[in-house]
Simulated assay, not measured.
Amino acid sequence: MKRKIAIIGGGIVGASAAYYLSTLSGHEQLAVTLYDDGTGQATSAAAGIISPWLSKRRNKQWYQLAKDGASLLMQLAREANLATDVYAQTGTIITRTDPTDMSKLWELAKQRAAEDPDMGEIQQLTAEEVKEKIPLLSKGQPGVYVSGGARIDGAKFVDDLLTQASQVNLTVKHGKVTLDEAGHIVTPAGTKRFDQIIIAAGAWLPDLLAPLGMKVAVRPQKGQLIQLNVQDFQDYENMPVLMPEGERDVIPLGHGQLIVGATHDDEGKFDLSVTKEATQDLLGSAQRFVAGLTVDSIAEAKVGTRAYTEDHSPFFGRLPMHPKILVASGLGASGLTTGPLIGRLLAGTAIYGGKPDWSKYEKNLANYFS
């Protein structure tokens, strides 16, 4: 008889867990069911940047998780044969306008590149050289180019992984589910029992665990981005992603499309409405780099809800009082970088059991529960 594993949440962690539950050794003995209602999912509204190496964050555990996550994504893109509109190693450019800050950034880049070959080639660029690499820019800033950086489309990434897993051992159920006091899954069709449950529900984790008498230190944050129609440079369909100092990220998609974002709205929480203020913020940031953009250039706006912890660190692992339940949350704005690795770690634990030591990636799980 096959072991039954459930996943609640079809975002970056849930979809990655489902994919690895269909590919890791032992997957032949599994029947996996994923539940997701799609409401407010951060991944489906995200177009992200995979470039953690020059982050200002001092959290060494987060950096190790993000660095290893970026490396895993390179491998996963090859294994899953992801198209370039899903994941593309375009390179990234991080800018600094102050010469002293630029010098510090360049020294950090050289140090990190020596430690991690996946970072690829690094170059120090003038403002004009940045414009040469991203010709749609009317204004450049000096920066550091990292060839290992990439862009990723969250919605397409998730759809691709779930499609591949569904051809092996995954069944996807659309709709909302809850837990009962015993930790079983309550669906519209009745209570379902599983051997293992992976809960990857982001900011909705506290509501799901409430019936178990548990409180989770996770808060929601609203994020919005916009997609713009811009000039199509047909010879530059894979331009680097721009991470300008003090501005929103600029993500060229090629084919005359550009994404700018995303905002960070702690007050918005679960509000999924597109706001005029956020749209103006994003458009203003784009206009400072690309001439001729107007409100009419906006093709689409997307909104999602991220999950944050007070220390801005993700957590994941097996619940001590409920050993059949594995959880993950608190990924924040770096979820597209760290989520696939977290999903793989949870999938491996669900298959092989045990209590792996993930202390190099995270603080003790007990820090986030009461």
Score class of each variant (00 low, 15 high):
285 S>D: 09
330 G>A: 04
315 F>V: 00
283 L>A: 02
253 L>H: 09
334 S>D: 14
327 V>H: 08
236 Y>L: 10
273 S>C: 11
235 D>V: 08
300 E>G: 06
298 I>D: 14
306 R>G: 00
250 V>K: 02
264 H>Q: 10
255 H>W: 15
293 L>Y: 03
327 V>A: 08
246 G>I: 02
239 M>F: 11
310 E>R: 11
206 P>L: 07
206 P>Y: 14
215 K>I: 00
238 N>V: 08
214 M>E: 06
290 V>F: 07
305 T>D: 13
320 P>S: 10
308 Y>L: 04
268 G>Y: 08
256 G>F: 11
261 G>T: 04
319 L>R: 09
307 A>F: 10
236 Y>C: 10
260 V>G: 01
251 I>C: 13
289 F>M: 04
285 S>M: 02
333 A>C: 09
247 E>D: 13
305 T>I: 06
258 L>Y: 01
254 G>H: 03
316 F>G: 07
292 G>A: 12
301 A>M: 05
266 D>H: 15
211 P>H: 07
333 A>F: 04
301 A>T: 10
270 F>C: 03
270 F>K: 08
228 L>D: 11
311 D>C: 05
263 T>D: 03
217 A>K: 01
279 T>L: 05
208 L>T: 00
224 Q>Y: 00
289 F>A: 10
249 D>W: 12
331 L>T: 03
239 M>P: 14
255 H>S: 15
290 V>L: 05
318 R>V: 00
240 P>V: 00
206 P>Q: 01
210 A>M: 01
297 S>T: 02
308 Y>N: 11
315 F>T: 01
287 Q>I: 15
289 F>S: 01
245 E>C: 02
318 R>Y: 10
334 S>K: 12
204 W>G: 01
301 A>K: 04
229 N>S: 15
323 P>K: 15
328 A>G: 12
286 A>N: 12
267 E>T: 14
265 D>Q: 08
275 T>W: 02
257 Q>R: 06
205 L>W: 13
207 D>P: 14
218 V>L: 10
310 E>V: 15
204 W>E: 14
260 V>R: 06
234 Q>N: 11
321 M>K: 14
304 G>R: 03
244 P>Q: 04
222 K>S: 02
296 D>L: 05
285 S>C: 07
218 V>I: 08
235 D>A: 13
270 F>H: 06
313 S>W: 13
318 R>G: 00
251 I>R: 15
288 R>S: 03
248 R>F: 14
334 S>F: 13
203 A>Y: 13
262 A>M: 01
309 T>N: 06
228 L>W: 14
258 L>I: 03
214 M>V: 08
304 G>Y: 10
202 G>E: 13
329 S>I: 03
264 H>I: 00
254 G>P: 07
327 V>S: 12
255 H>V: 12
230 V>M: 09
213 G>L: 04
243 M>W: 13
264 H>M: 07
216 V>L: 07
288 R>L: 09
262 A>L: 07
311 D>S: 09
317 G>R: 09
319 L>F: 03
319 L>D: 08
333 A>I: 01
236 Y>M: 11
230 V>A: 11
311 D>Q: 05
